[in-house]
């Protein structure tokens, strides 16, 4: 078990290192001179020269990669061309808004999706089940950008129930949560459908297992069978899926942050793209990638901890 966790973390680190190197290689493949590709057209010659010096752009590619990875790992993501502050600092100021948005979305996805899927599986083929099925498919298929825009039009502009803009910065916890509701729904609602379907499918499979019939044969109450025997096993795959889902949610968060003008990483990137402020956009990609790798790694480890069959490999 401990060995597995170590190995999984090592794999996560290796993937992250490779992802950083690959990003550098991809960007270097862009047309134009290498320093401009990394810094954008707005960079002054002095900044370009300093960058070329730092990475050794006259040196062979492997050397450049090692230097680039080294500087990224030491926390040096370059300088924001607009504010002249280190990119790391800029990202650190915006990241909490994205992280809290993702966490809230995960909460919505799991908190609504698991009970809905479970209820649908228990009442299989009922009207309720079919309604949940139709709702799930619809929620999954509507693009998050549409949900964000339509949601804002309906709940903020037309009904005035929820704030349309900002993150409620400096207005206390209540306001901050209030501002979080709509964006989190926009990011998480599609995943409610996804998780509900996944849980339903795996519950149905587990409920037809031999040991469930046995539990019934011993007269265990139905509720105990559903929660203690079935749901425990059926919920495991959702953890992995949610881990991978963080990647998609980061994408949806970009739209939600733009539509609701939340000062998160996505909004930061969007504004930086318009200004051709490449150090910020590249830094943001690396930060988001690190977040995703951490999420998938954590999901796998949680999964291993939950499944008692993993303990077998301890000896």
């Amino acid at each position: 078990m401990f060995g597995y966790i170590l190995r999984r973390i090592a794999l996560g680190c290796a993937v992250l290192l490779l992802a950083i190197s690959t990003l550098y290689v991809i960007v270097q493949a862009a047309p134009g001179d290498p320093a401009s590709a990394m810094l954008g057209p707005k960079a002054t010659p002095a900044i370009k020269a300093a960058f070329a010096e730092k990475l050794g752009l006259d040196k062979p590619m492997p050397v450049q990669i090692v230097r680039y990875v080294g500087s990224v790992l030491s926390g040096d993501l370059g300088t924001d061309l607009r504010s002249r502050r280190p990119v790391t600092e800029v990202l650190a100021a915006h990241a909490p808004y994205t992280v809290e948005l993702i966490l809230a979305s995960l909460l919505i996805a799991a908190g609504l999706g698991i009970p809905l899927g479970c209820a649908a599986a228990v009442r299989r083929n009922s009207l309720f089940d079919q309604a949940i099925g139709l709702l799930s498919v619809s929620l999954i298929s509507v693009p998050p950008v549409i949900i964000a825009i339509y949601g804002m039009l309906l709940f903020s502009a037309a009904l005035g129930w929820l704030p349309a803009i900002g993150a409620g910065v400096g207005e206390g916890l209540g306001s901050r949560l209030h501002h979080l509701i709509l964006p989190a729904i926009a990011v998480g609602i599609g995943w409610v459908g996804y998780i509900a379907r996944l849980v339903r499918a795996s519950m149905i499979e587990v409920l037809s297992a031999n040991y469930i019939r046995n539990a019934r044969a011993f007269g265990l109450p139905e509720l105990r069978i559903v929660y203690r025997y079935a749901l425990r096993t059926a919920v495991a795959p959702t953890i992995t899926v949610l881990g991978v889902g963080v990647g998609y949610m980061l994408g949806s968060a970009v739209f939600a942050e733009i539509v609701f003008a939340r000062p998160g990483i996505g909004k930061l990137m969007y504004d930086a793209v318009i200004l051709r402020n490449y150090p910020v956009t590249l830094g943001a990609v690396l930060a988001a990638t690190a977040l995703l790798v951490a999420a998938t790694t954590l999901a796998d480890i949680l999964n291993a901890l939950i499944d008692p069959r993993f303990k077998e490999s301890r000896e």
Partner: peptide, 24 residues
Amino acid sequence: TLGFDTVRAYPVIILALAIGPIFG
């Protein structure tokens, strides 16, 4: 497999936002 895992490490929309402008 390592290559697949590496590509899957990037959040797609965010990668597009950064790479898109660089490549025009």
